Amino acid sequence: MKRCLSTALPSRLNILGRDLLFVLCMNTVIAVSLNYGFQTGGTFAHNFLYSQLIGLSIWIFIDVPRVLIWWNDRPRRWPFMCLAVVAVPLGVVLGSWATRELLGLPIKSQAEAGDMLRMCLVVGMLASASMIYFYWSREKLAYLERQAALDALQREESEKQLVRAQLMALQAQIEPHFLFNSLANLDGLIATDPRAARQLLQRLIGFLRMSLQHTRAEQCTLKQEFELLRSYLDIQGMRFGARLAFQIDLPPALAEAEIPPMLIQPLVENAVTHGIEPCMNGGKITLSARDAGDGSVQVIIADTGVGFCQGHSKGSGMGLTHVRERLARIFGATASMQMEENTPRGVVVRVTLPLVRRTDPTLAPVRAPAHGGAPAMATPAVSSS
């Protein structure tokens, strides 16, 4: 309650202060008009005092109730007009009486009083018309501005909700072929090698558990992302055997760099599906990260598969499209993705992101060595060579 009062009081005082400054300026303009335009008689000092006191009286009877009743909201038309009709004659009477008292003017004759009343009414009508126009126009403009700001906030919130839903849908996608192939491989191993089947099942359970955690998070570290990808490549290694080798290289200084979860996984899946799988002799996938300078980190996925010539002959390329969409929606122009030929064959994908480190690191980076054929059980974490 105290907080509300402390913020409301300065707001109302600021409104009254702005209005008072406007009234004083308009009263001065009216005084000059009466003295040199209408030539109502009397000295400029008398006309100035009349204008100021009558205008201030009308302002008090109009603006103070308006602020107390409507505050920052737009006044309703007919209640405000009724307020002005009552305030104008009261302000004229009060301002005229105050002027006579301050100047010590004697009671005038009936003719002089009529002339003075007409002048006061002219002053009052000019002052009230200017104030009513000012208040109504200003409040209408303020109301439209508030409505426009509210509409903009609602649109922005709707866009945020849409983008958030789209990003969650994108990062929640798991390559269905990978799951189907893993389950088919598991079915074959159950009959021929139960121990290997159990090992594959354990790794698949661990991978799905980590994937589920990633889909529920808005950010993860490079270490966590690389651990998930190492688990994925371990499973694929059991499927491809000696046809798939991989190496993961994560410098300790970049282990706590934050990235959107499951951003790199579609690129690694592409390297396996479109690079290694079509290649008769298989190949090697290297996943690494490096400090690219200028406050950015670069993640590199390189494979020695078939390359551009045959690697994209099948598949829809949705993985690359999803990665590009996420980069554009989250980072805009500060992130990029480039693809190029690898040497002697294969593809290299470089993803450059703004470098943001987690302030309270809880995980220490370790190393995943190069693997060939069916890899052994996963080590605790990933680090550099």
Rank of each mutant, 00 (worst) to 15 (best):
A8K: 05
I30S: 02
P10K: 14
N14H: 07
L24Y: 00
L24P: 01
L34S: 01
D19M: 15
L9W: 03
V23N: 01
V23D: 02
I30D: 01
C4Q: 06
I30K: 02
G17E: 13
R3I: 09
C25T: 11
L21S: 05
L16K: 08
I30C: 06
L20C: 06
L13I: 15
S33K: 10
L9H: 04
L34T: 04
C4G: 01
L13D: 15
L9I: 15
L5P: 13
T28L: 13
L5A: 12
A31E: 03
C25R: 06
L13Y: 13
V23E: 02
L24A: 08
T7C: 13
M26L: 13
F22E: 06
L21H: 02
N27R: 07
C4H: 06
L20W: 02
L24H: 01
L24M: 14
T7D: 15
S11D: 10
R3L: 08
R3W: 03
G17Q: 08
S6M: 09
T7P: 05
D19L: 13
V32K: 03
L9F: 05
S11C: 09
C25P: 00
A8Q: 10
V23C: 11
N35H: 09
L34D: 00
N27K: 06
L9A: 14
T7Y: 15
K2R: 14
R3A: 11
A31M: 04
M26N: 13
I15C: 03
F22S: 05
C4R: 06
M26V: 15
N14I: 03
L20D: 04
N14T: 10
N27A: 13
N14S: 05
D19F: 04
T7A: 11
R18M: 09
M26K: 10
A8I: 11
S33Q: 12
C25G: 12
K2F: 07
G17A: 10
R12L: 12
R12K: 15
A8S: 13
S33G: 13
L16A: 08
L16R: 07
L34K: 01
F22C: 09
I15E: 08
V23L: 11
L16H: 08
S33L: 14
N35V: 10
L24Q: 04
L13N: 14
D19V: 15
S33W: 06
R3G: 10
L21K: 03
L13V: 15
S11I: 08
V29Q: 01
L5C: 14
K2H: 11
D19C: 14
L5I: 07
N27V: 09
D19K: 07
P10I: 15
L16C: 05
L34Q: 03
V23K: 00
L20Y: 03
G17K: 05
S33C: 13
L20M: 12
I15W: 07
N35E: 11
F22H: 08
N14V: 09
R12D: 02
V29Y: 01
M26Y: 12
L20P: 00
S11N: 07
P10D: 14
S11T: 12
S11K: 06
D19G: 03
N35M: 08
I15P: 00
T7N: 15
L20Q: 08
S6V: 07
L9Y: 02
L34C: 03
L16V: 05
N14G: 08
P10G: 10
S6R: 06
G17D: 11
L24K: 02
N35C: 10
A31K: 00
A8E: 11
V32S: 04
N35P: 04
L24W: 00
V29E: 01
L13H: 12
S33F: 11
L9V: 14
